[in-house]
Design a protein around this nucleic acid. Structure first.
Length: 566
RNA sequence: CGGGGCGUGGCGCAGUCUGGUAGCGCACUUGACUGGGGGUCAAGUGGUCACAGGUUCAAAUCCUGUCGUCCCGACCA
């Protein structure tokens, strides 16, 4: 490809509304162009990268035995009413009405459509297991799209859905897809982790997420230094060390803490570490108006874990100020468990505290020197908190570390949620109609592109992993317009490289070298060949890897060999 | 949805407080000189100052409303 025939629309300055590095570099490199919030055009350069990701995904899906289909982006409301999600999905579902006043939505996902497809077309266990995938544009009307294509309203996704007669078959396909996902992310050249994920409100048996590690990631993932354990912090647990609390050394007391609401404020006022303060949260209960949850001051509530407690109202919700006042007689900042007449559930770590500070159930006051059993009865124990770095891995092997990740894939053993609701059944060996069981498997194709940049860039621009690069080689001639020698050599080299199978970006613009170098660096082409009169006089060209600090001079006749080895 | 910021040429911004001929840098066009890390000089193109209403002799600037967009939070994968 010649730059004279290929739009290179690089920017020197960073657009003001781009926050994270991948978004900035995608705009500066001219990969994408914004049309509206969270809605982008993929420019020629960006599209080449997107297609590379697609190709890897497609090859591995095909190899894993999945069949490609292409489902409609627009879906009738009736299907979503059947599954119960027309009402439940909320504002994220982008809805439209056609000229006959019929309701439709732009598909944010395709469980309904694929399940409908299966119930219409598959009748026998002989046709199962079956696994269908598509690479298609999805629409989610995010409340806050951000970070360019990282969280866009319109984005490219690979979604696959498998159908089975039983859980065993599902588990087999799930494992095959898990391996396919590992193959895909291995091939992209990105540093990633597979982690255990929460199965969420849908239930289901197993779920794993694939995260590209990057500081800008929106998810936190915990992994063990001593074993394979890795989990989304939403789901991560740690080994519960059942230590007895230290013996009491202080007498109970009462201290004025006027205007101090948060644990941090109280700790600062009393000159105590956060870990010696007991945090009391009131949430809506199932049987009672509120339930109290107790945590050590330096720990945070894991709402996913809390939501699973039967005593709590579903969905999980914090108590309102009025409910807190009614139950504890004070504002949220002064609530404590001593004498509190509501069900109380304490995190394991909270039960190990001694001589702690907690709210006095009286505005502007806290209790000090409080101890379990002496000052209040032991509360019910539960795992309520988010893990923190340094916790022991739940398998007892090693300690947990926490890093940021970008979720690029998610696989899920769905079960019968959708097949049941939509009545997708097949006849089994006994000729009996049975509801099929499902798995689903997603990859954010466009997000992979952004995640790759987050992980691979420097202050000059993008450094593409070979597998995702829009071009393999940048061919930069010096003084193409003024030197017959250079022109002839460059054209010949371009032809040779292209014939050898390289995707070459031949910079035939009438630009100064600095401009061409800067552009090649910014758009991140992995290898660069500079061809000029000076080197040609000795029969040499300059070769440089994008990731390397320096270049080397290579005799022309050895160039192809050199590239092959690189 | 709550809080905050910003809308002035393709991009980055100044001008708004204190109303009076719409500016700067980059990019773009033409030419000359240049030619191994975003070059120099010269001459140009391009803006109903987000939109609507109002105040005023006069509005980018003041007032009211609307829209867009970004950030934080809530929400969500």
């Amino acid at each position: 490809m010649r730059t004279s025939q290929f739009l290179i629309s690089t920017l020197k300055e960073t657009p003001a509304d781009a926050e994270i590095i991948s978004h900035q570099l995608m705009l500066r490199a001219g990969m994408i162009s914004k049309l509206a919030a969270g809605i982008y055009t993929w420019m020629p350069l960006g599209l080449r990268v997107l297609r590379k990701v697609e190709k890897i995904v497609r090859e591995e899906m095909d190899a894993a035995g999945a069949q490609e289909v292409l489902m409609p982006a627009i879906q009738p409301a009736e299907l979503w009413e059947e599954s119960g999600r027309w009402g439940k999905f909320g504002g994220e579902l982008l809805r439209i009405t056609d000229r006959h006043e019929r309701d439709f939505c732009f598909g944010p996902t395709h469980e309904e459509v694929i399940t409908d497809l299966v119930r219409r077309n598959l009748r026998s266990y002989r046709q199962l297991p079956a696994n269908f995938y598509q690479i298609q544009t999805k629409f989610r009307d995010e409340t806050r799209p951000r970070f360019g294509v990282m969280r866009a309203r319109e984005f490219l996704m690979k979604d696959a859905y498998s159908f089975h007669m039983d859980a065993e078959s599902l588990a087999t396909t799930y494992e095959r897809m898990r391996q396919a996902y590992c193959n895909i992310f291995d091939r992209t050249g990105l540093i990633y982790r597979m982690v255990e994920a929460d199965t969420g409100s849908i239930g289901g048996r197993a779920s794993h997420e694939f995260h590209v590690l990057a500081d800008s990631g929106e998810d936190a993932i915990a992994f063990s230094s001593g074993s394979d354990y890795a989990a989304n912090v939403e789901k991560a647990t740690c080994l519960i060390e059942s230590a007895e609390p230290a013996p009491a050394t202080q007498a109970p007391g009462r201290v004025a803490t006027p205007g101090k609401q948060s644990v941090e404020e109280v700790a600062e006022l009393l000159q105590l570490p956060l870990s010696s303060i007991l945090k009391t949260l009131l949430v809506k209960g199932e049987e009672t108006p509120v339930v109290a949850l107790l945590l050590r001051g330096d720990h945070e509530l894991n709402e996913i874990k809390a939501a699973k407690l039967p005593q709590l109202a579903s969905p999980f919700e914090l108590a309102t100020a009025a409910e807190i006042k009614a139950a504890a007689g004070c504002a949220a900042g002064s609530v404590g468990p001593v004498g509190l007449a509501v069900p109380i559930i304490a995190d394991y770590a909270a039960l190990q505290m001694a001589d702690f500070v907690c709210g006095a159930n009286s505005d502007g006051e806290h209790l000090t020197g409080i101890n379990w059993q002496r000052d209040l009865p032991l509360a019910d124990a539960a795992d309520l908190r988010k893990v923190v770095a340094g916790d022991t891995s739940p398998d007892g092997q090693g300690r947990l570390d926490i890093v940021r990740g970008i979720e690029v894939g998610h696989i899920f053993q769905l079960g019968e949620t959708y097949s049941q609701a939509l009545g997708a059944t097949c006849l089994d060996e006994q000729g009996k109609d049975r509801v099929v069981t499902m798995g689903c498997y997603g990859i954010g194709v466009s997000r992979v592109v952004a995640a790759a940049i987050e992980q691979h860039h420097d202050d000059r621009g993008i450094i593409w992993p070979q597998a995702l690069a829009p071009f393999d080689v940048a061919l930069v001639p010096i003084k193409l317009q003024g030197s017959e020698v250079v022109k002839e050599a460059a054209e010949k080299l371009y032809e040779q490289l292209t014939e050898a199978g390289y995707e070459v970006l031949f910079d035939d613009r009438k630009e100064r070298p600095g401009v061409m170098f800067a552009d090649a660096d910014l758009i991140g082409i992995p290898q660069r060949i500079v061809i000029g009169e000076r080197g040609l006089a000795e029969g040499k060209v300059e070769y440089k890897q994008r990731s390397a600090d320096s270049s080397e001079d290579i005799p022309l006749e050895q160039l192809l060999d050199h590239l092959r080895k690189a």
